[in-house]
Amino acid sequence: MSWLVLIVSGVLETVWAAALSASRGFSRLQPSLLFLVSLALSMGGLAYALRDIPIGTGYVVWVGIGAIGTAGYGMVALGDPVSAARIVCLVLIIAGVIGLKLLH
């Protein structure tokens, strides 16, 4: 159960990062509220998962999911640059996250 909560919390990290950007410095109410709710749920889920998962593994998996999700969202929805080098770097992050999970 802890791994599932950790994965969902990592996805919520992507949500709060995107909402933070959309809030335009907290000047827009709905994205600002989405940011606050998703941040609280993401952190709460991380705290829950770390009861059973070592902090180093759990935190890296959480950040990795959030980083990959946020970068992917930026490239797909916001027009962030897409290049082979950027994709390779994201694949390396995924490989590291999977490696840590397998070594857990």
Rank of each mutant, 00 (worst) to 15 (best):
S42Q: 08
L34A: 13
D80S: 08
V15F: 12
G58R: 02
I93N: 03
G96V: 07
V5A: 05
I87R: 09
A18G: 00
A95P: 03
V63I: 13
T14Y: 05
G74D: 03
L78T: 10
G79M: 01
L34K: 03
S38W: 00
S21N: 15
F35N: 04
V8L: 11
F26V: 05
I94F: 15
V61K: 01
V61D: 00
I7T: 13
G79Q: 08
L102Y: 12
R86N: 09
S9R: 00
M43W: 12
F26M: 12
A18T: 09
F35V: 01
S9L: 03
G64H: 01
M1Q: 07
G58T: 00
W16M: 06
S21G: 13
R28C: 00
L78G: 06
A49T: 06
Q30F: 14
Y73A: 10
P54Q: 03
L29R: 11
V15Y: 09
P31H: 07
L100N: 09
V88I: 12
D80C: 02
A19I: 09
S83D: 02
K101F: 14
L12I: 08
D80G: 04
V60I: 14
A47L: 12
S42V: 07
G25W: 03
M1H: 10
S27N: 11
A77F: 15
S23K: 10
V91N: 02
K101V: 15
S2Y: 13
A49D: 11
S42P: 11
I98E: 07
S38N: 06
P31W: 09
M43V: 14
C89E: 09
V60E: 10
G58P: 07
I93P: 01
A40T: 15
I94L: 15
I68C: 08
A49H: 07
A22G: 01
P31V: 06
G10I: 07
V97W: 01
A19S: 12
K101Q: 10
I68Y: 02
G10F: 01
L36Y: 12
L20V: 06
R51W: 01
Y48W: 15
L92H: 04
I98S: 08
S9D: 03
A71K: 10
G58V: 01
A47H: 10
P31C: 08
V60R: 10
G72V: 04
T14C: 10
V91S: 06
A19L: 05
S2I: 00
G99V: 04
D52L: 07
Y48L: 13
L29N: 04
M75P: 00
V5M: 01
V97F: 04
V5F: 02
W3C: 08
G44P: 04
M43L: 15
V11W: 09
M75L: 08
Y59I: 02
E13W: 06
A77T: 12
L6K: 07
P54L: 04
I93G: 02
G25C: 05
P81W: 07
L102W: 12
I53L: 02
S83R: 01
L102R: 13
A95M: 11
S42I: 03
S38Y: 00
P31L: 06
